[in-house]
Simulated scan of single mutants.
Amino acid sequence: MNSKTVKQLTPGPAGALECALDRPDGEPRGVAVICHPHPQQGGTMDNKVVQTLARAFLQLGYRTVRFNFRGVAASEGAWDEGQGEIDDALAVIAAHRDPALPLALAGFSFGGYVASQAAARLPDDAKVERLVLVGPSTQKQKVAPVPEETLVIHGESDDIVPLSATLDWARPQSLPVVVIPGVGHFFHGQLALLKNLVVRSWHR
């Protein structure tokens, strides 16, 4: 993401997982783990939306951890239909979280599904401070119910995950969804707005 990004391998359930770590200036206020889009559709930790989320968390003072799911780039293993990928996220969380600091968890598209499921599986004494789901894959995957303070952002013109699918998922939870008018799945031309929405939501 920048010249200070540190790459390292973290042990995972199907082999080593490639991670990219960024530290804020000064002492971190928390740790943020960010999950990338669908591995079989070109998703990696270097996706622009994923990097935008990492920049938002860095600005907020979090130490950020992006990682490649099993079978992507330098991560070992093979695609596991979305189940093993949740285990990957839990392994990265376990390896990189600091018990003394809050944990934030974020995901884009398929990564939003993984983040929701990983958050739901954390023990009660180790829950996330907050979830951020961007264009979560609510149509093809079973996105878990999420805490009421979860930030969900979706493009009005998303042609990969219809906005209606995310509203159908959010409605039974009475969960607000931030809709960006005229924006598609990959937030082309609106990444700065996406970053600002995350930062502003934390300040509120």
Results as ranks from 00 to 15, higher is better:
4 K>N: 11
7 K>I: 10
9 L>F: 05
10 T>N: 12
11 P>W: 13
14 A>M: 12
16 A>V: 05
22 D>V: 10
26 G>K: 10
26 G>L: 11
28 P>Q: 14
28 P>A: 14
31 V>L: 12
33 V>E: 02
35 C>Q: 03
38 H>V: 01
39 P>L: 15
44 T>R: 03
48 K>Q: 11
49 V>G: 01
55 R>Q: 12
56 A>D: 11
58 L>Q: 04
60 L>A: 13
63 R>F: 08
63 R>T: 15
64 T>A: 12
64 T>S: 11
71 G>V: 13
73 A>S: 13
73 A>C: 07
75 S>A: 09
78 A>C: 05
78 A>G: 15
79 W>L: 14
86 I>L: 14
91 A>I: 06
92 V>T: 06
98 D>I: 03
106 A>W: 03
108 F>P: 05
109 S>N: 02
118 A>E: 02
119 A>E: 09
120 A>N: 04
121 R>L: 14
121 R>W: 07
123 P>E: 13
126 A>N: 11
128 V>L: 12
128 V>I: 07
129 E>I: 09
130 R>E: 03
133 L>K: 00
135 G>A: 15
138 T>Q: 02
141 Q>C: 13
143 V>H: 00
143 V>E: 00
146 V>A: 04
153 I>H: 01
153 I>K: 02
155 G>N: 03
158 D>R: 03
166 T>G: 01
171 R>Y: 10
172 P>K: 08
178 V>L: 05
179 V>M: 05
180 I>F: 11
181 P>K: 12
187 F>R: 03
188 H>W: 09
189 G>E: 06
190 Q>P: 07
191 L>F: 12
191 L>D: 07
193 L>C: 10
194 L>Y: 12
196 N>L: 10
196 N>S: 14
197 L>T: 07
198 V>K: 02
200 R>F: 09
201 S>T: 06
201 S>F: 07
